[in-house]
Every structure is written in structure tokens, then in C-alpha cells.
């Protein structure tokens, strides 16, 4: 059930060039991957939608959070924390960048739909340990469990790459993946492009929790813009160039993606070619965020009929095969 809520900024930090991670308290007890929050920006007409990049529900975190109860009465009920990521773009994101710990956030949540999660039955290689991933589980300062993958570290270690000798500027994903011993079977392939990585990170966390083997490949324009958390990273080139290889190697059942329209369109094309289901999280300027204003509609083709769907309420996650691209 969507609600109009208030939370307190628990953490705000730069995590990459022009990229900010914002964490705020919430009374919600759950939120699904793909869902988004719509944050009020003072003096702007429209709220700004942000995909959930992480959600934690943790009593240890709650104790720290109590310091803010004097700022916001409702905060006593806020036992959870929502994380969003954003790229500095306009007035809205620049306002948010200026927030500090303890500042109040007015938001609507949870909004939108979620991804279909495949079941993990009948797959002998479905657990993280069985699939051969090397993972380090840590507990962060807030008491939230985080999973840092070794291969991410490997990726970050490829600094100083000679861009001239690699025209696309891309890291050879496949080689790196093999080097760290990734098993050749993954149920889900997640493709993030730029800030579109946000919902992919939260989806990955949920898939991991459900022991559904998965691989997240992300693409960024420059090394400075890389957001951590992927299994494989492409810098400079197109993340799409790596997707066919990954499909051939991992034989996923489903592709998930979020990013610019051009990337999503290519993900859908690749999915079609490989006869795979693709679920994509879309973005459009929104006014109401709840399906009433019809400002953010796209066209879907379903059962041979073309009909409108609002990104905010019918989406933001759509089956790639149904989307009609403008």
C-alpha cells in the first residue's frame, strides 16, 4: 500500500563522479526491487522518482536512528532504511545533494511494480556457494549485511588500462569472470547501464538472498563514474557488447535491465534473438507517480492489442517483449 511518508537522512555520500548515495529512514517493513520512491523537492512542482537501490530492516540500525526522533516525531516508527542513488542532473538532484544527516525527506512509497523472480527449484547449481562465486559477507556500520564480491575488486584493480589498445575501452569481462572461477550457469543476468544500476543492485541482493544464481554486468562512461557492486564492469564501451557472450556462457533464464532507452532496447533485441524473457525497468518524467495523470505512458503490445501503460503504476518494470519503442 503506497503511503505519504517522512524520513530522516541517515547517510549521504558521493560514491562516484557526480553520483550520490542517499539513505533515509522509513517505517516501511518491506519494499520490492524495481519499486521506487517519489521525493518532494521544495519549490519544485514535481516530485522526483528514484528507484530503490537498497532496503534494510534492522534493529541495530534502529538504535542509531533514534537520535533523530526529536527532529521528526514519526521517526520513532521508522525502523527501516531506503537507499537511492542519483546522478547530479538538475535542480532536484542538486537540492538533494545538499541534504545532510538528520534532514527531513518527504516521499511517497512504495510505488510501482516489481520484477518477476524465478523460483530456485530444480537447479542443482542454484546456491551462491555451489555456483562457485567468491563472496565476502560483511556487516556494515548500520548492521546491514553487505555482500562484496571479489570479482568487483578485480575489476577495480584494472586501473591504468591502455585505452588506445582497447578501442572500446572495455574490460574483457569474460576473461575476468573465468579467472575468478565463476560457474557457467546463472539463472539471471542483470544488466545495468550508468545510474540504471540502482534497481539492479537491490534486485541482486534479493536474488542472492533467495539463492538464485545471478550475474550483474554494468556499463559506465568513465572509470570515475563506476558505481560498485557489479560482478563485471564495462568502462567506456557498450555493456551490450558483452551480453551475448554472457548469455552463451551462463545460459540464463531471464535478463533484467535498467538504463537509458537505447540500452534497454538492445537488451530486448538480444533477449528476443536468444528466446529469453527480458524484464526492463523504465524511466519517464512523472507528475503524480500513482497512475492518475497519464503523463508517463508508454505503449505496450499485449494479446495483439496496443494499449497505454503508465510507467509509474503499471511499471516501471515491463516485459521487454511487450514494449513498443517510440
Amino acid at each position: 500500500m503506497k503511503k505519504h511518508l517522512k524520513g530522516i537522512v541517515l547517510n549521504i555520500e558521493n560514491i562516484a563522479k557526480d553520483t550520490v548515495r542517499l539513505e533515509f529512514s522509513t517505517p516501511l517493513e518491506s519494499i520490492l526491487p524495481g519499486q521506487f520512491v517519489s521525493i518532494l523537492i521544495p519549490h519544485k512542482t514535481l516530485r522526483r522518482p528514484f528507484s530503490v537501490a537498497d532496503f534494510c530492516l534492522n534493529s541495530a540500525f534502529g538504535t542509531n536512528n533514534r537520535n533523530f526522533d526529536s527532529i521528526l516525531e514519526e521517526n520513532a516508527k521508522n525502523k527501516g532504511a531506503i537507499t537511492v542513488l542519483f546522478k547530479l542532473k538538475g535542480d532536484g538532484t542538486n537540492y538533494l545533494k545538499g541534504l545532510q544527516k538528520g534532514d527531513m525527506i518527504d516521499y511517497l512509497a512504495p510505488l510501482g511494480n516489481t520484477f518477476t523472480i524465478p523460483d530456485n527449484k530444480n537447479n542443482p547449481k542454484n546456491t551462491a556457494s555451489a555456483s562457485g562465486d567468491i563472496t565476502i559477507k560483511t556487516t556494515d556500520a548500520r548492521g546491514c549485511e553487505t555482500v562484496d564480491r571479489i570479482n568487483q575488486t578485480v575489476m577495480n584493480g584494472t586501473k591504468g588500462m591502455d585505452k588506445d589498445s582497447e578501442p572500446s575501452g572495455a574490460i574483457e569481462t569474460k576473461a575476468v569472470a573465468c579467472a575468478i572461477g565463476v560457474n557457467s550457469s546463472k539463472k539471471a543476468l542483470l544488466i545495468g547501464a550508468g545510474i540504471g544500476i540502482a534497481p539492479m543492485l537491490y534486485l541482486k541482493k534479493i536474488l542472492d538472498k533467495k539463492s538464485i544464481s545471478n550475474y550483474l554486468i554494468s556499463g559506465f562512461k568513465t572509470e570515475e563514474e563506476v558505481i560498485k557492486g557489479s560482478d563485471g564492469v564495462v568502462i567506456g564501451g557498450s555493456v551490450i557488447d558483452k551480453v551475448q557472450n554472457l548469455i552463451d556462457e551462463f545460459r540464463p533464464e531471464i535478463l533484467y535491465s535498467c538504463g537509458p532507452k537505447v540500452v534497454l532496447q538492445m537488451v530486448c533485441d538480444i533477449a528476443k534473438k536468444n528466446e529469453l524473457r527480458a524484464e526492463i525497468a523504465m524511466e519517464k518524467v512523472m507528475a503524480c507517480g500513482i497512475g492518475v495523470c497519464r503523463g508517463c505512458v508508454i505503449k505496450l503490445e499485449k494479446d495483439d492489442a496496443i494499449k497505454n501503460a503508465s510507467v509509474c503504476a503499471d511499471g516501471p518494470v515491463f516485459s521487454g517483449a511487450e514494449v513498443i519503442w517510440e
Binding site: T45, L46, V285, M286, C293, G295
Partner: peptide, 14 residues
């Protein structure tokens, strides 16, 4: 495109 945010306003062409 159906929406365009302006200074203190919104243009719509739903």
C-alpha cells in the same frame, strides 16, 4: 512527451 516542468508550473499535453 506529455509533461514539461517549468518554474513553478507544469505544462501537460495528455
Amino acid at each position: 512527451k506529455r509533461l514539461f516542468e517549468t518554474s513553478s508550473g507544469l505544462i501537460n499535453r495528455i
